[in-house]
Simulated scan of single mutants.
Amino acid sequence: MLLGTGKFRDFTVMRAALEASGTQIVTVAVRRVELNAPGHAGLLDAVDWDRYQLLPNTAGCRTADEAVRVARLARAATGTNWVKLEVIPDARHLLPDPVGTLRAAETLAADGFTVLPYVQADAVLARALEAAGCAAVMPLASPIGTGRGLRAPELLRTVLDGAQVPIIVDAGLGVPSDAAQALELGADAALLNTAVAEARDPERMAYAFALGVQAGRAAFLAGRMLPRDHASPSSPPEGAVRLPDPEVPDPEGPL
């Protein structure tokens, strides 16, 4: 489970949610951080980076060129090669640009970045991003911040089928059962932000999502039963107590 840092009421709530989630990877939008500002007491100072892997993201970038520039600025400022790649020209639905994402991924991977691109659930694009050298692929469950859950599980199945890198379901998850469903299908991880930050109790919701992720992964490894068209008793019929059938009264009466 990965967790974002946006939309929390304050840093205290955010830190409590990070702790409760058990996450090891935390993503931060580069444009939200006043990097190297004198006396700055902002987001980077609010998180203990000895405990978490920093994953800068390129949120707000509309083109491949913008995303590449922001990723390089993040590396220069933070020293990490990791980047969550987002190229989103669509301000209304926040859907990622597949062409721009692939172009930026090719550039950043060649430049030594550990690239985790945010994309729609498109198996052809996912394979192209793998070939470009991405460390993982992050298909959306539903549009960012909607909380609608996994809207197209069959498309996610096609992304998972034959994937050679981890598949991290990102965006649109609303409740822990959404994350469990994604991992039951075979996803390797889930990235959360809004579902936790906008919960009535973010700390408790972060813990609930941690349990959902664990349950989904355990279920996938256990292997689900095959669904059937008809009911199947869980107990054998042998040895069941049977009473004689009552006599059926004659509709014509005693005569």
Score class of each variant (00 low, 15 high):
115 V>Y: 07
43 L>H: 08
218 A>T: 15
51 R>E: 15
137 V>I: 02
56 P>I: 02
59 A>D: 01
60 G>D: 03
108 L>M: 00
224 R>H: 06
169 V>P: 04
26 V>H: 01
41 A>D: 15
3 L>F: 08
3 L>H: 05
153 P>W: 08
4 G>F: 09
172 G>D: 00
251 P>G: 08
52 Y>G: 01
140 L>Q: 10
197 A>M: 06
206 A>L: 10
49 W>E: 14
164 Q>E: 14
222 A>W: 15
10 D>W: 12
128 A>D: 13
174 G>H: 00
191 L>W: 13
124 V>Y: 11
83 V>H: 04
207 Y>I: 04
11 F>Q: 12
7 K>Y: 14
123 A>V: 08
252 E>Y: 07
51 R>H: 14
166 P>W: 09
26 V>Y: 03
124 V>S: 15
212 G>K: 07
176 P>S: 04
45 D>E: 15
114 T>C: 12
128 A>I: 10
220 F>M: 05
240 A>S: 05
238 E>K: 09
234 S>P: 04
129 L>M: 06
17 A>W: 11
200 R>H: 01
124 V>M: 06
55 L>K: 02
244 P>Q: 05
122 D>T: 08
245 D>R: 13
84 K>L: 02
61 C>D: 02
213 V>A: 13
34 E>Y: 09
65 D>C: 08
122 D>I: 00
103 R>N: 06
79 G>W: 10
52 Y>D: 12
120 Q>N: 14
206 A>V: 10
172 G>A: 02
99 V>L: 15
5 T>H: 06
7 K>F: 08
93 H>C: 05
44 L>D: 15
151 R>M: 12
163 A>H: 10
132 A>R: 00
254 P>L: 13
15 R>D: 12
141 A>K: 02
30 V>R: 11
83 V>Y: 01
68 V>I: 15
228 R>Y: 11
81 N>P: 09
117 P>A: 04
197 A>S: 12
1 M>A: 12
154 E>C: 06
178 D>P: 07
218 A>C: 06
122 D>W: 01
221 L>H: 09
226 L>Q: 07
60 G>C: 09
156 L>S: 03
60 G>Y: 00
218 A>V: 02
228 R>M: 13
76 A>P: 04
22 G>Y: 02
119 V>H: 00
148 R>Q: 15
164 Q>C: 10
241 V>E: 06
206 A>E: 02
51 R>V: 05
246 P>R: 15
42 G>W: 11
200 R>G: 05
